[in-house]
Each structure stands twice: as C-alpha cells, then as structure tokens.
Design a protein around this nucleic acid. Structure first.
Lengths: 217, 217
DNA sequence: CGCGCCCTCTTCTAGAGGTTGAGGGTTTCT
DNA sequence: AGAAACCCTCAACCTCTAGAAGAGGGCGCG
C-alpha cells in the first residue's frame, strides 16, 4: 500500500479509511451516493477509477459533520457547500418560480382585486408578465395580513421603508459597482446581501422592541 | 362561530386558521400527527374534541419554525421543546439580558460615542438604565453597519419605518386590548406577534426584490 | 493468473412525515 | 327537528430521503 500522501490523490478505499475513525458509519456506497447527488466531484482515472484529493476529504468531512451535528438534509448541505467551498461551476439552479397571473392568484389564495390593489400600490410587479418566488411570498403574506383588516393601502409605508433601505444599500455599493473591475459585481452582490441582512435584522429588532412597549412590557 | 377569544381555548380548526398565514402548509391532519408524535398535548372536551390554548399555538409555531428554518427532525425538536417549554415555570429561563452601559459597549464592540449617537437618534434606549437582549442586538448590528460606513443618522429612516409598522400593529390590536376580557391580553400578544412576523416577512421580501433590480437582476 | 479492489446499474429498504378515506359522533344554524 | 359544518379514530397509503445489497464485469499488481 503506497502512502496516499505521496500521490496527492487517493482511491475511494483510502478515503474511507481516512474518515472512518471520525465517522464510523461512512461507507463506500455512501461516498458514491454523495457523488451521485452532486455533493462532491472527484476526477476519474482513464480506466474510470475515482481519484480523490485532500479537498474532497475536507468536503466529505464537512458533509458528514453537517449531517451528524446539525441534521441538515443533503439539499441544504449542498447549498452551504457552494458558499464554503465556492461554486465548482454548475451555477446552482434555485428552482425558478415563474407563475402567470392566474397561477399566482391560485397559489397565494387571493382574489383578483387584491392583486390589482397590490400592483397599484407598487407592492408587487410582474417581470415579463411572470411572477417569481418573491412575488408569491409577497402575495401570500399580504393575503394573510388582509385577514386582519390590513389592506394594500395600509402597507404603502412598508413599501416606502423597503425602498429607502434599498437606497441605503445601493448608495453604499455604488462605488464598487462603478469600478468596472472583474469580480466587482460579485463583490457588490456579496456586500449588498450582507448589508441587507443587517438592515433587516435591525429593523426586526426595532419592531420587536417597539411592540413590547405597545403591549405594556 | 364564536370568536376564539372568549373561550380561552380553541378547536383544531381555529388553531389552523391562526397558523395558516404564517405557515401555509400546516393542516389539520398535521396538527393531529404532531400530537400523535408527542410534540403537543392538548386537553380534550368530554366528547373527545381537542382543546388548544395559546400556549399550544406557541408550541406549534416553535415546531413549524424549527422545521422550516432549521430543517430539524421532529425527534430533535421534541428535545428542544422540553428545554424551551418543558417544566412549566422552572424559574423563567430565556436568560434575561440586563447590561449596564459599559457592559453593552463591551458586548457589542462599539465605542461610547457610537452608543450616544444611537440614543440620540432613538434607535435604542435603556429601561431603568439597563439594556436588554434586543438592545444588544441593535447595538451589534449597527456596529457591523458602521463598518460599511453607515452611521446612526443614516438609520433614522429604519427607525421611522419600524415605528410605523408598530403603529399598524397597535391599531389592529387596540380594539382587542381595550375589551378588558380575561385572556384578551394573551390574544392581543398572539395577534401582535403574528402580524409583526408577517410585516417583517413582507418587508424582507420587498427589500430582496428591490435589491435585485438595483444589482441588475 | 489470481486476488483484491474498483466500476455501473438495478432493485430493495427503512424511516420520516405526513395524506386520504371510511365510518361515525357532536355542535350549531335555521 | 334536521341539515350543515365540524370533529373524532384508525388503518391504509404515499412520497421522499438516504442510503444498502448484489449482480455482472473491469483493472492492476505481485
């Protein structure tokens, strides 16, 4: 048995041996299965044997830990891997939702006129006559709010607030975007995502605090 | 149909109605299933109908959130529930945070002057000279935002927006609160929580959508 | 050339998390 | 009272995830 260190890549059996100490119930069949699910992508030798590197072992460790300690489903682990290990191309689907008007009404469980109202107040707009995931979520949420007597016109303020926050993000990110360097867009997206998370978090905290005083304590 | 408010306990259908806004795919059969799995234990009427209280609704919310947002298996959720809800009273956990000024600065990793700014702009205020969990979160978040060049004065709009949303909730809940019936407070809290969740969700959706167009798709 | 390792592919499975429907009682509206 | 709406149990069924098991067949090396 040649040491796996020397060759820089390992066979599936060697990988198994490496991991088995830490994760007693990993098996060859499981590793193959994980490849099938697109979680790892080992190279192949001319004759078809899988060739693993240390990176792959790292990834497997990540997967197995996520399963064992955080109970995450593979689908979610896959997404997280894209973040932690960076897109190994494949551009990740995300299962685009694209509904037409009738489908949206159906899926969100709202009336035509509610939708019209929503569009009037700018809470939601189709892109190329189609509604995406986010639009569906808006429609559903507004539907639920309507059951409390809150109609679109009450929600204009929410839209305005969202717009102002977007403005804040835009303003911060603009210089990066302008600098037409390669990778600038990716960087801007990253920053925008991070900023918006923070702003949403702040917003939520403020609302919760405000509410507590409304309810007396 | 009598309002669920008056009776302090609800039928399974009423519980369903309460939750469906926030969790569109909860069903009666699922609620029964969760009882079968030992996650909730509603009382029964003499004729065998389930009787739910606000606590049960709270627990269901906990379960559904854990599933949806953290992908936890029921088995694990059950364990967590024992911690969060288990053993009624048991000295009120939730581990109240009550920091003084210095501790807050330390914990949030911000400067005295940043905090002063925050208080000036009404983003945060001590209660009886102490800062709670939510205040800490605000301070921390603002600290992170500051690293992107966003200072308290940029965030006034966020505060204003949060206040307006609180107003919306207050307005909706006010009639219930006034009606000084027993259980009215619990019901109001329940409604307020639900409304604010929906509003925050809506807000987040709008921000994400807006951001996408800022970044060009 | 034989023994151990590796390959693909198909079929099987165990469990989680519910759904559906039959058959039957209860509550409430009119 | 009678219908409509709601609720009950229990058993059967279903879909999806996460693999396991085995058949049938290639590599590779001492």
């Amino acid at each position: 048995m040649t040491s796996q260190a020397a060759r820089s890549h390992m066979s599936i059996g060697e990988v198994l041996a490496l991991l088995q100490g830490e994760f007693p119930d990993v098996t060859i069949s499981k590793i193959r299965f994980l490849e099938g699910e697109g979680l790892i992508e080992p190279e192949r030798s001319p004759s078809g044997f899988r060739k693993f590197t240390h990176l792959h072992v790292e990834q497997l460790r990540f997967i197995l830990t996520a399963q064992r300690d955080h109970y995450l489903p593979l689908r979610v682990i896959k997404d997280k891997m894209a973040e932690s290990f960076g897109r190994p191309r494949a551009v990740q689907q995300k299962q685009e939702v694209r509904l037409d008007r009738a489908e949206l009404l159906e899926a969100a469980g709202i009336e035509e006129e509610t939708l019209a109202e929503l569009e009037d107040y700018g809470l939601l707009a189709p892109v190329a006559r189609r509604y995406d995931e986010e639009a569906l979520n808006v429609a559903r949420t507004v539907g639920a709010l309507a059951r409390f007597g809150l109609r679109a016109r009450h929600l204009r303020a929410v839209r305005a607030a969202a717009e102002r926050e977007c403005g804040l993000v835009e303003q911060t990110v603009a210089p990066v975007l302008k600098r037409r360097a390669p990778g600038a867009i990716g960087e801007a997206e990253e920053t925008a995502r991070e900023l918006s998370t923070l702003l949403l978090d702040l917003h939520a905290s403020l609302v919760r605090t405000g509410l507590r005083s409304v309810l007396g304590r």
